[in-house]
Amino acid sequence: MIHQKIKEAIQTYSEELTELRRKLHSEPEVSWEEENTTAFICEYLENLGIPYRRTNPTGVIANVAGAKVGKTVALRADIDALPVEELNKDLPYASKEDGKMHACGHDAHTAMLLIAAKALNESKEELPGTVRLIFQPAEEAATGAREMVKQGAMEGVDNVFGIHIWSQMPTHKVSCTPGPSFASADIVKVTFKGKGGHGAMPHDCIDAAIVASSFVMNVQTVVSRTIDPQRPAVLTIGKMDVGTRFNVIAENAVIEGTVRCFDNETRAHIEKQIEQYAENVANIYGASAEVEYIRGTQPVINDEYSAKFVQQVASGAFGEDVLYTEKPTMGGEDFSFYLDEAPGSFALVGSGNPEKDTEWAHHHGKFNIDEDALATGAELYAQYAWAYLNE
């Protein structure tokens, strides 16, 4: 199952792997602005002789075609950064862009897949099938995967595999369990309209601030009192925009939040309940309510066969001790859209090391990775593809 030539290639290119990651880290580009990152990926693939095509407006799809006919397995890496200010100013490879940072590890994912592609390309004469390489933009905007699917990323693909660096896990550890991995991630926006007026004359008004506050307090019972406790769900209100001045009764209030869960039945129930709560709270005060519920990413549900296959590959490549069981996260991942097209799985590779200060939460300005994890991720990409095509 494990190809020794690939293992040796990854080890040989470990220094280059780190250099690639550091270059990408220092030059972050946010969702749908990854022009330079896309150009860099294209140049790297061209130098390897791997055929590719750019997707619109950013992103790359490439193929490592084996000498023998066989199945097609897709490997995905996301390439975008976040609008986060880098706080690790002392790093020699710190972000050069104010207010932009690779605070989630996508720089590592891209570098790992490039080196995995290099190792696989060197063994393509032995490869029975095709490895599809997907360098995806705009994961942080939860729109990139869907667009890549539209542009043909999954055409002819039999299985798909993705990796996420994970700072909450020890370096080198690999977690890929069957079933739920990442939650669906939806956006909810509620607009209340009351009747504004002078702060000294509330009896002549309908105070949108009171309406909105009542809704925020009551809507939490959607989760705590209407959903089976054994079905995890989160409803978070993260933003309230109410009022214009200290002595003016607010006429309008806009509330924004997010809903996370692992199954679409629960998802639909929460959506319906939010609409009912908003309407009924508004009616109590004589206001009106308008609800906009935007479905974002689907839950990432690892195919049982594929997830167990990842475990076999990981233990074969790195030993049984590498396996780790990480609980499902309420975080969102648009890798889910690839799983709508083909069976597959999404693995976590640990990069948390207290001695290197790499246990900061993803999306934090001090987020960084233990670069010793890069080779683990790159080899896991390549060995999974090799093993799947040779199965």
Rank of each mutant, 00 (worst) to 15 (best):
G129E: 00
L133C: 04
M148Y: 05
H109K: 08
E125D: 15
A67H: 13
E126A: 04
L113T: 02
S167N: 01
A119T: 06
F161G: 03
A116R: 03
V60A: 06
D78A: 14
G152V: 13
L133Y: 06
E155G: 01
D78H: 14
P170D: 00
V160C: 04
K96I: 05
Q151K: 01
H109Q: 15
D98A: 14
K89S: 14
L113N: 11
D90Y: 14
E140T: 01
K89C: 06
L127N: 07
A142Q: 15
I61T: 12
L114P: 08
C104A: 13
E86C: 03
T110F: 12
D80H: 12
A117P: 04
E85G: 02
M154V: 14
V84F: 15
T72V: 15
T143E: 15
A116P: 02
V60Y: 09
D107N: 11
Y93S: 07
P137V: 02
H172L: 09
D158P: 01
L113V: 05
V131M: 11
H164C: 04
H172N: 09
V64F: 03
L127H: 08
P92Q: 11
T110R: 12
E147M: 05
A141E: 15
E85P: 07
V60E: 09
E97R: 14
A103K: 04
F135V: 00
L120E: 03
H106G: 04
A94T: 06
A108C: 10
T72C: 12
Q136I: 02
D80E: 11
E139F: 02
A108T: 08
N159Y: 03
L75M: 14
A119G: 04
P137S: 07
G152C: 10
